[in-house]
Simulated scan of single mutants.
Amino acid sequence: MQSVVPALFPIIGPTMNLNYTEIGWIAFTLNITSSIMQPVFGVLADKKPLPYFLPIAMFSSLLGMLGLALAPNFISVLVSVLFIGFGSAIFHPEGSRVAYMAAGSKRGLAQSIYQVGGNGGQSLAPLFTAFIFIGTGQFGTIWFTLLAAAGMFVLFFVSNWYKQELLVKVPAAKKTQAPTEKRMLNKEIILAICLLIFLVFARSWYGAGINNFFHFYMIEKFHSSIKHAQIYVFLFMLAGVVGTFFGGPLADRFGKRTILLFSLIGAAPFALMLPHVPQWLIAPLLVLIGFILQSSFSVTVVYAQELLPGMIGLVSGLIVGLAFGMGALGAVIFGVIGDLYSLQTIMVFCSVLPILGILTVLLPSDAKVREIHQRT
């Protein structure tokens, strides 16, 4: 559902006469709504799990899809994406809890499978543009209401399973509530969570630059068609899906902080090269960057869950919601940079963001996290 919004940018940009700043505001509205509300719903889910919020979340996205299909102007587009953002905010804390409860001892693998679903859907955005919206226009989003309806049907059965699991596992969770609260007050844990949010913030800024503006960059610099430019973004996002899947099992084996460090520092050299290479080298670089950068996507959530055990909903809100949503500020800032300077400037600015990954060395190792909790 969310991937439909950036997929529409090349369509509604010319038809509604939107500038890059306005496109940035649409992306910002979608993500900031999700980011502000996710921690709220996360805290609610931790206090009182609400299984049937899952289909309700999908219904909110359905309303957003219907609104996008009929939106006549910029303001109505913003209102429509608000509903999609609310759907995401409601869905992810409860969805993360379902994945956590079904994981057993393979939390990295389980979270990877869960996140691959979201990243896989988002990676289809360029294909939606190239093969649906170029032909059907903005009204083509009406077909996605059928997808949302199917999602509601599936989630009804997931919610029933979730409700049955809660009858068994909630009493055990309540017994660990008191020590969880003490862990939250630990200064080392709080500092680690803040640093982790900052790193996710930087990573999501890079993704915002590529996902929202790289196709415009290809059109302007290399005179690509809309369809051809979207293929480059698709390669980046598809490689990210593969990286997301492999990152979880690798973290289970080599440690979560190791994969976090690798994902940012490993991508940095290729990111720095991207704005300065000829067209034939762009696709291979995007694949490498997407795979390496997103290898820590699910790992970040699992690492945060281990920093704050027993607070699965809050962790989802902070990492999947707040950090990624605040990263959507990048879409607005990049839009302003594009209008004031150039798309090349956006790409150069993005290229330095992975270097911030060097701060990962300040995070406690997996063994250190366990030691901190044992002390408390």
Rank of each mutant, 00 (worst) to 15 (best):
M1Q: 10
V5G: 07
A7C: 07
A7T: 10
P10Q: 04
I12K: 01
N17W: 04
E22W: 02
I23G: 01
W25D: 03
T29Y: 10
L30M: 12
I32N: 03
S34N: 10
P39W: 00
G42Y: 02
D46C: 01
L50W: 15
P51E: 09
P55K: 01
P55E: 09
M58G: 04
L62T: 14
M65K: 08
L66K: 02
G67H: 03
G67D: 08
L68H: 05
L70H: 07
F74Y: 02
F74L: 07
V81Q: 00
V81G: 15
I90P: 00
G95Q: 04
V98N: 10
A99S: 09
Y100R: 10
M101L: 15
A102H: 12
G104S: 13
R107E: 14
R107I: 13
G108I: 13
G108D: 14
V116C: 13
G117E: 05
G118Q: 08
G118M: 05
N119G: 05
G120E: 07
Q122C: 03
I132E: 05
I134E: 06
I134W: 08
L147F: 14
L147A: 11
A149P: 07
A149F: 13
A150Y: 12
L155C: 07
S159K: 00
S159E: 06
N160P: 01
N160E: 11
Q164K: 14
K169Q: 12
A173G: 12
K174T: 13
T176F: 15
P179H: 06
P179K: 11
K182W: 03
R183I: 15
R183V: 13
N186K: 11
A192P: 00
C194D: 04
L195Q: 01
L196N: 09
I197Y: 02
I197G: 11
L199V: 01
S204K: 05
Y206G: 14
G209N: 08
N212L: 08
I219S: 02
S225P: 00
S225E: 05
K227V: 15
Q230R: 10
I231H: 07
V233E: 05
F236C: 10
F236A: 09
A239Q: 01
V242P: 01
G243C: 03
F245G: 03
F245I: 12
P249T: 05
P249K: 01
A251H: 06
D252T: 01
F254H: 07
F262Y: 14
L264Y: 06
I265P: 02
I265V: 15
A268S: 14
F270Q: 12
A271G: 08
H276W: 14
H276L: 11
V277E: 13
I282C: 03
V287M: 13
V287A: 12
V287Q: 06
G290F: 10
F291E: 10
I292L: 04
I292C: 02
S295W: 11
S295T: 08
S298C: 06
V301P: 02
V302P: 00
G317A: 08
V320F: 06
F324P: 00
G325V: 08
A328K: 00
I333H: 10
F334H: 04
G335S: 08
G335C: 05
G338M: 13
S342W: 13
I346T: 11
V348S: 12
I355N: 15
G357L: 04
T360Y: 06
V361K: 11
L362H: 06
P364V: 09
D366C: 06
D366N: 11
E371Y: 13
I372L: 10
